[in-house]
C-alpha cells in the first residue's frame, strides 16, 4: 500500500472496505503500525507547530511605536537644545547641519522627521534634478502568472560582488504596486501621488517631508512615505513608517505585509523576511501569495 494511503487513513478518507483492509494489514505488520502511529502524532502536532510559528512571526514583526516614542523624545531634546543655542545669540549660520563628507552618498539614510532641520523649500539632501538614480535600470522578467514589478528593486550602495549578488536576488523577487487597489490620494497628497505614479521618488520624498511637518500624524502620509522609502531602498525607515499606520485597511493589509517583507530584505534580515513570506504563502487568498512563494524559493 502506498504511503499516501496512510495519510488517507489518518484523515478518515478511506472507504469502509479500504479501512478494514488497512487495519488488517496494521494488525499483521508491527513496523507499519509503528510508522502509522508516528505519522498520526506528527500530523496531529503539525497544526499546532504552525500556529506557534505564526505567533512567533507576529511577535517578531517590528514595532515602530516604541522607536517613535524614543525619537519623539530625542527630537524634543534636540529642539530644546537648538532653541537654547539660538537664544544665546550664536550666529544663525552655525546652526546649519555639517556638509556630508566626501564619498558619502548624496541621499544618506535620513533620520526621522522629528530630527530634520526646518526645510526652506527642497531639502538639501535631495538634488533637484536627480530622479534618475531611482529610475528603473533593468526590468526583470517574472515567471508566467506573475506580473512584472512597477519598478525594479532599488539600487544598493557599494559596488562589490556581494552587493551585485544581493541586487540580483532583489531584482528576481521584487514586486511593488502603486497606487494600492481601491486607494485614491487627493487633496494635499494629489501632487505626491502623481509623482509616485511617475516613479519620481526623490521629488515625492521631498514633498512628503514638507507635508509631514504640517501633518505629522497622518496614516496616508505614513503609507506614502513608507512606500517611497521602500522604493529608495531604505528598508528600516520604510518599516518605521509602515508601523506607524493605525488603520491599514485603506492601503490593503496584504500589500503592507508584503512590503514589510521587502523592507526586511532591504535591511538584510532574510530570516525575518522569510518568516513574513511564509505567513503570506500559506494564506490561501492572499493577494501576494504567489510573489511570496517565489520569494521563498529564491531565498532558499
Amino acid at each position: 500500500m502506498e504511503k499516501y494511503d496512510i495519510e488517507a487513513y489518518l484523515n478518515g478518507e478511506l472507504s469502509a472496505a479500504e479501512r478494514q483492509a488497512f487495519e488488517a494489514e496494521l494488525a499483521a505488520n508491527p513496523a507499519l503500525a509503528k510508522e502509522v502511529a508516528l505519522l498520526r502524532q506528527l500530523t496531529e502536532d503539525l497544526g499546532d507547530a504552525m500556529l506557534w510559528e505564526r505567533v512567533s512571526t507576529a511577535r517578531a514583526l517590528p514595532d515602530g511605536r516604541a522607536k517613535w516614542q524614543w525619537w519623539t523624545f530625542a527630537g524634543a531634546v534636540l529642539l530644546f537644545g537648538g532653541l537654547l543655542w539660538y537664544s544665546l545669540g550664536l550666529p544663525p549660520g552655525k546652526t546649519e547641519p555639517p556638509a556630508a563628507p566626501a564619498g558619502q552618498s548624496a541621499a544618506p539614510e535620513l533620520p526621522p522627521a522629528e530630527l530634520q532641520p526646518i526645510a526652506t523649500d527642497t531639502p538639501s539632501t535631495v538634488p533637484k534634478n536627480a530622479p534618475t538614480s531611482d529610475r528603473p535600470i533593468a526590468i526583470n522578467t517574472p515567471p508566467a502568472g506573475l506580473q512584472p514589478p512597477l519598478h525594479p528593486a532599488p539600487q544598493l550602495r557599494g559596488n562589490n560582488s556581494a552587493d551585485t549578488t544581493r541586487k540580483a536576488l532583489l531584482d528576481a523577487l521584487w514586486y511593488t504596486d502603486y497606487p494600492p487597489k481601491g486607494a485614491s490620494f487627493t487633496g494635499q497628497f494629489a501632487e505626491v501621488d502623481a509623482l509616485l505614479q511617475q516613479g519620481d521618488f526623490s521629488k515625492s520624498y521631498a514633498r512628503l517631508q514638507l507635508l509631514e511637518r504640517k501633518n505629522p500624524t497622518n496614516d496616508t502620509l505614513f503609507f506614502l512615505k513608507g512606500y517611497c522609502l521602500l522604493e529608495r531602498g531604505k528598508g528600516g525607515e520604510a518599516l518605521r513608517y509602515f508601523d506607524k499606520i493605525e488603520n491599514e485597511t485603506p492601503f490593503g493589509k496584504e500589500l503592507l505585509e508584503w512590503y514589510r517583507g521587502l523592507a526586511l530584505l532591504l535591511l538584510g534580515d532574510d530570516s525575518q523576511a522569510k518568516k513574513v513570506f511564509s505567513v503570506i504563502s500559506i494564506s490561501p487568498a492572499h493577494s501576494f501569495k504567489q510573489q511570496a512563494q517565489r520569494a521563498l524559493e529564491i531565498l532558499e
Binding site: L42, T43, D45, L46, A49, M50, S278, I282, Q293, E297
Partner: peptide, 25 residues
C-alpha cells in the same frame, strides 16, 4: 513535543511546508 515538531518542520523545504500548512493548518 510540539517544539520538536517545529524543528522538524523547519528542516523541510518551502513546498512541503506549504502543502502541509494548507492541509493541517
Amino acid at each position: 513535543r510540539k517544539a520538536i515538531v517545529r524543528q522538524l518542520l523547519d528542516q523541510l523545504g518551502s513546498t512541503c511546508r506549504q502543502l502541509l500548512a494548507l492541509k493541517y493548518f
